[in-house]
């Protein structure tokens, strides 16, 4: 599975606030994929590389913990 792309993980435990991309969308390195909310702060999860979003594994209001995969980029 993992060889099918780059797994983008959250570095923190948070609630998912917004999903900013769709499956199939092309992204550049540094684009915001998802915005999390934690400690009253909005924390963007950025694309670590350019590519196409092949999977989004979260939706708004999900609770996620450090290390969870948010999206996959191929």
């Amino acid at each position: 599975m993992a060889d099918a792309g780059t797994e983008v993980r959250t570095e923190i435990t948070a609630n998912v606030w917004q999903v900013r991309v769709e499956v199939g969308q092309a992204v550049a390195e540094g684009d915001e994929l998802v915005i999390l909310e934690s400690m009253k702060m909005e924390i963007p999860v950025e694309a670590p590389c350019a590519g196409t979003v092949s999977e989004i594994r979260v939706q708004p209001e999900d609770q996620i913990t450090e290390g969870d995969v948010v999206a996959v980029i191929t």
């Binding site: 923190i12 934690s38 702060m41």
Partner: peptide
């Protein structure tokens, strides 16, 4: 570091 714990 605001992106972790809001920097708290």
């Amino acid at each position: 570091q605001p992106k972790v714990l809001g920097g708290a």
